[in-house]
Amino acid sequence: MDRKMSPETRSALEKLADWFRARSIWMLHYCTGCGAVELPPSMTSRFDMERFGIGPMATPRQADVLLITGYLATKTLRRVIYTYEQMQTPKYVIGFGSCTINGGIYYDSYNVITRLDLYLPVDIYIAGCMPRPEAILTAFNKLREMIEKGEANGWKRYEENKEWYRANQLKALNGEVYVTR
């Protein structure tokens, strides 16, 4: 898949909108794993995310970034997919920690996914187990640059390659994505 979209296709209005989006990033953190423990220091007085306009939000409807901190079992992957599809475009995904990259210490688990980018369009990965707050802030600043240049278009990729993502999701979730239990 082509990750880069040429920025020239954006109209002036979209460029302006991207300028605003880059400066106000509201994140929804999906804290299943141990990575959540690195977020309080990033938000509070020592590292202070809010000076970049980054803040936590309570619901997927209001959020721009889905921050997935740690491993995803198939059961939680299902809920993450619901959450992601409830978010409003433009939306971005950050995979946080080695577990989302290659499974981390759960590389041979029967129930934990190894690659998040097969199921959701990840814009940025933060490597580490666990990443320090400095790494988190670096990633967010990188995301900010990408949004401003129009490169963070994972949500477009998700819409364009919906079948591919859906097939992967069905494979990992044993043939059913939406359950009502």
Partner: peptide, 28 residues
């Protein structure tokens, strides 16, 4: 609030950026 919590805090025009961004997003 940021200064009370000994943080640097967002720029004072942050709220304008937030509102502009919200109007640029899709909504349900």
């Amino acid at each position: 609030v940021a200064r009370v919590q000994r943080r640097y805090g967002p720029p004072i025009w942050q709220q304008f950026i937030d509102v502009a961004k919200l109007f640029s997003k899709s909504s349900i």
